[in-house]
Every structure is written in structure tokens, then in C-alpha cells.
Design a protein around this nucleic acid. Sequence first.
RNA 1: GCUUAUGUGGCGCAGUUGGUAGCGCAACUCAUUCGUAAUGAGUAGGUCGCCGGUUCGAGUCCGGCCAUGAGCUCCA
Length: 651
Amino acid sequence: MKITLKDGVVKEYAAPLSVLDVAKDISEGLARATLGAEVDGKMADFRTLLDRDCHLHIVTADSPAALGVLRHSCSHVLAQAVKRIYPEAKLAIGPSIENGFYYDIDHAPFSREDLDALEEEMKKIIKENLKIEKFELERAEAIRFVEEKGEIYKAELIRDLPEDAVISFYRQGEFVDLCAGPHLPSTKGIKAFKLISSSMAYWRGDSDRAQLQRIYGTAFFKKEDLEAYLEHLEDIKKRDHNKLGREMELFATVDVIGQGLPLLLPKGTKMVMKLQRWIEDIEDREWGYVRTKTPLMAKSDLYKISGHWDHYKDGMFVLGDEEKDKEVFALRPMTCPFQYYVYKNTQKSYRDLPFRMGETSTLFRNEESGEMHGLTRVRQFTISEGHLVIRPDQAEEELQGCLNLAIHVLDTLGLKDDVSFRLSKWDPENREKYLGDEAYWESAQGALRKILQDKALPFKEADGEAAFYGPKIDIQAKNVYGKEDTMITIQLDCAIADMFDMYYIDKDGEKKRPYIIHRTSLGCYERTLAWLIEKYAGKFPTWLCAEQVRVLPISDKYAEYAKEVRDILLANGVDAGMDERSEKIGFKIREARLDRVPYMLVVGEKEEAERTVSVRSRFAGDEGSKSIEAFVEQICREIRTKEIRKEEVQA
RNA sequence: GCUUAUGUGGCGCAGUUGGUAGCGCAACUCAUUCGUAAUGAGUAGGUCGCCGGUUCGAGUCCGGCCAUGAGCUCCA
């Protein structure tokens, strides 16, 4: 992105534009304070540049970077308020984050009342219109400076910087904080803020170190923006699968059954079964998979061969006691080794490869107690798992196929635009956690990178996210709260065939080691259901709905006709229900809408006489009167094509 | 696992300083037979998450456990 600053300096900046980059140029004298700038040849609303002291000057509030600076300054005001009310509190760090800011503080837990009191103090500080000023100290001097104040966490941060570093601080009134900036020129610039919540966080994210209190807050340039954001927080709660999914009777949890073990209720089960049948059908009929059904548990010996016993024992449910019992079993945390033995059951020739196995596979993972969440993090779940045993020369084509299948699935569900791609690599700093050497990892990671690049998919690379046996392409989705989960994974594994002595007979008559691709096409059914609930706020595409049509007789007199219509729909493979209670039609419609049923068929005297149905849909409202045959044809087509009809009617 | 909050009929909630549980919706019954988002009346339903303690007496106070939410850590 090219920016022409007012004094005529033209500079190319990387997109997205970073205020910090511009700030650096300002401090080096390349630019100076300005309230207007030309972006890509035309004047833009870029009015958030910084002056020589790294102060942000703001006229409009549309830049995310500007918001970041505002929120960072707001976090300093919070820290100042904390020190005024609780002088003994020690400060850790206080950055701006995606939707606000936080500050980690070493102090006893804060209640909502404490937060309210802090908000009041913050308002005072803002009103005092304290100038925010930058100053710098040599490293040793800086350490002495913060230690005099008892700020041990700040001292640790400075000690981690190089010997010759110049340490910058910002001062506002009596309050000084270690900080690289930039900041607003004064506290008065903070017009609209709110402390959202507080909770515990570990110092430097290490669960063995100090437990700090993290106060979350947010700030905006305009009061309306803050109010809109707070309203948005309320709105997303209504989409939250963990609330909506229970309300809609898709799933439930029961204390006595246990944590992370949700029950899929009839409606949720129906949806999951529709997904499952679809995935199995396309994998087997269109993508060349064979289906397996393998045991949910095995002797520990199996996991010793696969490496899971060494690498993952804590995450498995082990049945039996290694000391006492002759045989110890474990519930499976993955399907890999089971399918390897399916492959090994008969000798394979190079002609048999690729050998693609799919299994709708239930897995068990003993997550720690605080990690369970709704349907997205559970102890037992079912995935569309699969393993492709391939010749090395088939790797590229098969990896592409896996990615294409995943994208086809996402596209069909209407979720394609909501995902991000991640190349999950090993952590070169912790090599002992992984199988194989550097050359293996570099080449496997390179192969996956090429697949993503060839498809021109934007992706980020992440160290330390790989499986212990190989790198992954992970397809990530965010939930309504912005938290990311892996939905689909494709992993290349060139190491494990050796451990299980898997081979094929090549053209030259020699035994060769195959590669293995571990992959999912839709991933975890429970997680996907959760994602769909949040994406559609419960208003699913018709083909996925547990109840696709509800027939509503005007009165008992037309119940027989309603039943006939319902039975015709059922016979045509449509999940149809009927509301034959002695209620008014308005009441039945209200309930059907609250249940988010896509199609309501009102039938009364006129419809019975003409053998029609009066169609009211969730999408378009009143769709008029249609013959039974015409409606059956319409809805069967919609279901068959998995059409996602647009919602045109406000709920 | 860690910090913190919460747990009252199916759901959403009320329950004052400890004195034998209430409301709305839903359910059920009866009446109503109705034309596109709530017909009316009545009935029933709870050892207040579980276990223990303090007390003459515990939904209320204390302890332990279980579950749920938020966040941290973790997610092979």
C-alpha cells in the first residue's frame, strides 16, 4: 500500500497498514505528524498517524490500528486506577487485543463491584486530562527504576531485553509504565470504555508460575460504537451453540454421566446422521474410499507400536492396571493403527495404491477437567476419519484430492468463507517430541506448503502445531466468541509405515514403504454441529433440518387430510411432522417458527377440497398455495441439491 | 489441572438477618374447532446438584464432591 504523507514523502507499506510502521518512520524523521494521508493515490480516511513522541492523532475512528492504540492507552488508565485503589498490586502486562484490551495484575481476585469501582476511578483519571509522555532509560537504570517501585514482573521483562537496549516508559500523572507505545497524547482521548470481566491468567502463560488476575475491557472512539459492541456481545450469546443447542433440544449433558459426554438428543442425532450418511456416500461413491469398522479399544501393545503409549498416554482412557493385570486395554484416541492392520490384511501391489480407507470413527480422549466445552471439546466424539496408503509418487495428487474433498464439504455446508488454513509444523526447539529427523520434516512440510500454494489458498504457518508423526494442513474455524478450533485436518506421514511394517510390492518386485495420509473430510460431527448452530443461529439449510416440514391443520376436521399430506412427504423421504393439537393456527405457526421448521403447510377446507397445501416458509414467508405434487417436487429438489435458501424474512 | 462464579419443579427466574418453598412459560385435563407469531379455565409437578457438619430448626451458614459458565493452561 503506497502512502503519500503530507510533506510529500511517498512510502510503500505492507498491507494491512500498520500504524506502528508509520510511527517508526516518524521517529526516524522520515515523516511528520499529519492529519491526512493519501493511500494508493487518493485521499483516504487515514487520519491516525503519530507524532514524533509516538502520540496518535485521531480525527476519525475507522482504523483497527488506531483502535489498538486507544485501547492500549485505556489499559494504562486501568493500571493507574488499580494502583490508586490497590497500591500493593503488582503490574504484569497490558496489551490491546482483538476486541479490546486486558491488564494482568498480581492481586487478589476482583469482583464485579471491584471492576465498577475501577471504572469510576478510570473516569476520574480521564477527566484529569493527564498528558501521556514518553521517556527513555538505559537498561540497568530501567531495572533499578522499576525495582524501586516493587514491579518485579516489569523488571523480569526488562532483564529479557538485550544489554544495550534503551527502555522506553510512558508517564501519565503519577503513573509510569514500561511500554513501547504508541499512545494517545492524553487520557482525555478515551471517550467510551467498559471493563468486561476478570479471571485468572498465568504469568507468561506458564501454569507453573504466578497466578495473576486478568481484567478484560474494551474501548471505542464513540459511545455508539461501544454500545453497539455490547449489544453485539448479547447477540452472539443467542447464537452460542452451547446455549442454543440445548434450547433447541439438539443435545444435553447430565451430571451423573460425566463431563465432556453430551447426549445427542433425537433432533441433534437426526442432523448428525444426515451429515454422516452424506459423507459416507460421497467418500465411497465419488472419492474412491473403502469403508471400515474397527474396534473402539485395543491392547496397550498396539499403542506401544504406534508411539501413542509414549507420546500420548495421559490423554487416553486406560482400562486396567499395568502392575496387576496381564492385559491392559485402552479406548482408542484415533483410528490410525486399526486401519493400518486393515491395509496389512492382504499383500498389496503398487497397483492397489492409493488405498483409501474411511471410517465413521468414535474416539475417546481424556481431556483435563477444565477443558471441556459444549459440543466443541468433549471426551467422546465421532469423526469422518480416513487413512490413505499411497506410493510416494502419488503424494501430491492425493493430498490435493483430500483438500478438494474438504473444500467441497465446506462449500456444501455454506461454511467455506468462514475458515482459515494453517500449515501446522513441528517445533524445531522441541525435537524430542517428534518422530523423524529434520530432513523428513522439511520435506513433508514443503509438500503440504506446495499443495496450499498451488490452490492459491491464503494460509499461515504455525510452529509446534504438528502431530508427533507429521505436519498437517489444518482448516480452522472461529466460534461466535472468536475462539479458533480445528475443523478439518490433513496430515502427511512418511514415518509410521515403517513402524507397522507396511509395504507394497513395486513394479520391480521389491517391497517398498508407502506414505500415509491421515485426514478428515468433515472432521468431528459434534464440532461441526456446533459450528452449524452458530453459523445459522439454528436456522439450518432445509436438507439438514431434523424436521423439514410441519403440516398444520386449521382445525381437527382437517387432521385426516393433514396426515395424508404428511405421509406423502414421509414416503418421498422428507422429514415431515404434523401439529394436530386443538390450537389456533396462529399458535401453531408461532411454535413452528420458534422451532425453526423451514416449511409450514397450512391445510383447511379449501386445501382439502383442491388437494393443495398453503406454503409458508422460514425463508420467504407466504409462498402461496401449491398442489401437493408441486410442493413435494420443490422440497425434494431443495433437499437433493442441498440448497441453502436465503432468509428473506426477519424472525 | 488452575482461578472464579453459578447450581431452586422440563425451561427462565424470585426466595429478605437460618423458621417446613413461590412466579412466568411449558406439561396435563376440560371447554373451544378456529385461516397465518400466543383462546380460556382448571390440575399436577420440587427431599432447593450430591454427601457430611453447625443448629431446636438449613434452599439460606461451614466443609468435601459432582456439574455448568467465563478465563488461563492444554488440544498428540
